[in-house]
Design a protein around this nucleic acid. Structure first.
Lengths: 223, 223, 223, 223
DNA sequence: CATGAATGAGTTTTCATTCAT
DNA sequence: TATGAATGAAAACTCATTCAT
């Protein structure tokens, strides 16, 4: 799985060009996660992807372009899966809590993607809106449902994302255990005005659904 | 002030070597803030400091070392000033609120230092403990005073710092206005279990004391 | 006409392969003229010709080969047209003057070809003899007619060509006006020993015939 | 001489930095002459100069800058020497003839510099004016002296230069013998309106003065 | 014939670091 | 201490050319 890479897995039935592109994207995810965006070199990406360095430029203009491609593909997948998994949930408190917990759960599934996503959020502003479109809706829903008393605006959204990313990153680093998602979700709910006890219950109750899966994200048709 | 640099100002009565070192640190702060750590080059730091590039290595082993030196000096100053300013404050809610607001207010005072600090927190783990030692004490104080109901541990501290840094960074980027400190402080207090109305009042009440000043930070002995 | 290219126009009734080859040659002329030989890349030539880059190598061994092909086709056309247009002219002074003026007039007609020709002359030695075969004959004719007193040899021919190319290039660059042909022709005649007044009259008299046309050059069989 | 290079010879008493710079300029002249400007790579220049490739950028911003530096130093030297050698000559016919002959004679002295100069004239427009300032004055002088009947303007100057460069280049290529200077000078004089016989005599008469020397050009103080 | 992805050597340029002065 | 020229590894990117389809 680590050796093959999820993009390649997704592209296995596509043309040769798409597979090479996927190999490069898998390699980029891996290196961005390991070394960071700046430190990852195009030559190294090509080396890991097992193609000639010139081949990189057949598929991407530069490092920025592959980073954006990777980030948006990941974000797209994450958002879709979160949305799908919560289609039936109508309670704003539950939606917000589940969203954060599942998002942070990403860390446990595919560290590389988690790290890449973490870095990409700081790099691409568009990505934030991509990721927060549903969050915003859920927060507003909570206000209408009378359960959230905080003012919903960009500042709140940003703070929310910062908290979730912090939990995600800490878990990736091994600083926090696998309950990081629940912990941050509880704090977020308290912050929004949810009573402490409700917040605790919602944030820690057992999730029956399977955890976030990344591979299917990319091929919903096959999923 | 901007042109001279705060480290040089601090070192003005010291020996020539110390002044050269200070010039390099001022230049480093400036460039780390403007270009980021990776993009700032040693040659450029030396150029801005108006010394030969070789001189850099007389004072610092490498770029990491000057980054650490700069970050810890800034952090040290920030912490001391925060502590000094709150010597008389005994209420935990007030201490936490003031601490965050003053810390974020740094952005308005010296953007370069704010940015350098922001970046450095991600780079040096030690810096976090340096910055959070008083915060931890205040949070525990609040628990003892019965005003905070959240569990005080590393996770909470980290979340706290993430929220404050997010507000700081957003203000530096111009995304948030000058009330970012109050906004984040209010959210933090709610999160800790402070009643919404109290949180609002504490986070937004007028601060009479002068805003954070960086120069004195560095020369308390001489001040 | 500009968009289609003259080689393609010429090859429109030939097979598909010939038309592809012609498209490549048109693209090459255009790019050699715009960017120079070194800067024009094979990939770009193929792109402009709207064929795959691999297709280039079906028709030409390398960049040198297409450059040579293009240059000789242009030179061949130029020489033939000059010759045709002067079939009736028997006076050496008139032939030399007309030849230079028409040759330089190329600049006004098809700048791309002018530039390509200009560059090619420096690249391919053979091209010079191709271009100067008739000139040599006319100069010798003038000597026999007793109107030229200079020694006719390679050095003179080369100087002649250098003067004409200089006028051509200057006109292409916009440094000289449309009278560059007449000006250089007058100087050449003086140099050959033609009395100043005669030189002036011959070089500046109205030319009734149509200016050099490039399209017919390439399809004399079809014309 | 070839191995040491004239710029290095000139800089032998200067500082280390100046000598390295001179080594790079000598290497550049050599490679521009051998391969042309485009084909000469910065790495190759550094290699020939026997310095690390990074050292190139300590002294020049890019290839353009070293090319300009080299060309203008050569042109400056050539112009000064031509001017010095003709200080006593007052007859315009003689001045023009001598100027061309000496200029072309450069080829015989230092082929590398001749070639570099030849290429540079096409590259840098400023260089043309640098080189032609005295020529223009001499041509105008000839008109005032009543010996030149042609109109003196930019077109004539350019034609003049083209003729001289053609002779220079041909001699460098081995196409013409060492009399190329005299031959072109004779043609130029005829072109200007000088009687054929006078032109022949002036262009071919023995020159007693030593031929153009490049080394002293660069250190007139030491010459 | 035509395609176009893939190649890899080669180019320009940057930059942390060393070292003789 | 301070200098600053010199270093050379490594980065981003280009491009003529090949080859399987």
């Amino acid at each position: 799985m680590t050796s093959t890479g999820l993009f390649v897995w997704e592209a296995q039935n596509l043309g040769k060009s798409a597979r090479t592109r996927a190999r490069l994207m898998d390699a980029a995810v891996q290196l961005f996660a390991r070394d960071g965006f700046e430190a990852a070199s195009v030559n190294e990406i090509a080396r890991v992807a097992d193609v000639a360095n010139g081949t990189f430029y057949v598929h991407f203009r530069d490092k920025d372009e592959i980073a954006a491609a990777v980030a948006f593909r990941i974000a797209e997948g994450v958002v879709r899966q979160l949305d799908d998994a919560m289609a039936e949930v109508t309670d704003a408190v539950e939606r917000v809590s589940l969203g954060t917990r599942r998002f942070v759960g990403l860390a446990a599934s595919v560290p590389d993607w988690g790290r890449a996503l973490f870095r990409a959020v700081w790099l691409f502003d568009d990505l934030r809106s991509e990721l927060t479109q549903y969050l915003r809706a859920d927060l507003n829903l909570g206000v209408r449902q009378g359960v959230f008393t905080a003012t919903i605006d960009d500042f709140l959204i940003d703070t929310f994302v910062a908290m979730a990313l912090n939990a995600l990153f800490g878990q990736l680093q091994g600083a926090f255990g696998s309950d990081a998602g629940s912990r941050v979700a509880e704090l977020q709910l308290r912050m929004l005005g949810v009573p402490a006890e409700t917040a605790r219950q919602q944030a820690w109750r057992q999730i029956d659904e399977p955890p976030l899966q990344l591979a299917p994200l990319l091929r919903p048709a096959a999923g």
